[in-house]
Amino acid sequence: MPLDMKPFDAKSAPKISDKDFEQLRDYIYNVCGIYFHSSKKYFLESRLARRMEGTGCKTHADYYQFVRSPATGRSELTKLLDEITTNETCFFRNMPQLNALENKFLPEIIGTKGKIGFKKLRIWSAGSSSGEEAYTMAMILLEKRATLLKDWIIEIVGTDINETVLAQAREGVYNSYSVRNTPDYYLKKYFKEESPGRFLLSPEVKKLATFNQLNLYDDNKMLFMKSFDFIFCANVLIYFDTSSKSKVVQHFYNNLQPYGYFFVGQSESLHGVNDKFKTVHFPGGFTYNK
């Protein structure tokens, strides 16, 4: 847990009614494209309590009005999303996605490219933050180095707007919170626990990924991010308004190989953002392709 976060006393959070929950969930979904499962109700309740304290709203209904107001709504929503998505980043965050990738999408793309003798795999973690997603991919691919990916060139690119997190990604040092989901096998093989709670990523993983600063709004730079087989963009688009979202997603669409896949975060949705991408379902999630 980052130092600036107070441990939260769940008991003190005001209980949210089903009606208020659904109203707020629909609003967040419609504006940001992220869905709150009913099982996350208590989580949302506790995070909302912080924002209600911050805004002086007494009831959930007051807060709902506040977050919808044209003057303050958007910036408040960003703060709420920060509360909701902070701490989300970790290695092996989205297991259903990784399973599907490993069992289905990766072998499929390797088959397609292998046939035409194009033995190069390009992966982009857009909004990479401190690199957990990019490095998770690197570890999964390293496991296939002797078999499926023998003689393949692998390029993993992580981009973020924030230089501080990029520096952390390049450094490759993580705390126990970041590795909390990492299967033991990977933890033992690719990390060194230098001191309690301080994990150094192995150089062999680090050298598979590069990290660059990129603003997803920057059309010129986006044009150069070409020919990716997999693009990941989790919990980034939720901060954009609809037209920016459409524009950025169109870039992802253009930058994806015809047989590639585009992944968003676990509860995100591109509905209404782009009508070219097709939805491909797999156990526990879905992805988009052309």
């Binding site: 599907a100 069992n103 289905k104 097709k278 939805t279 491909v280 379902h281 797999f282 156990p283 526990g284 999630g285 879905f286 392709n289």
Partner: peptide
């Protein structure tokens, strides 16, 4: 089959609705 009601994980399907 893709939303956890899948014979305890014994079926493994992907599909493209379109």
């Amino acid at each position: 089959s893709v939303r956890q009601l899948d014979y305890g994980g014994n079926s493994w399907v992907t599909f493209n609705l379109a």
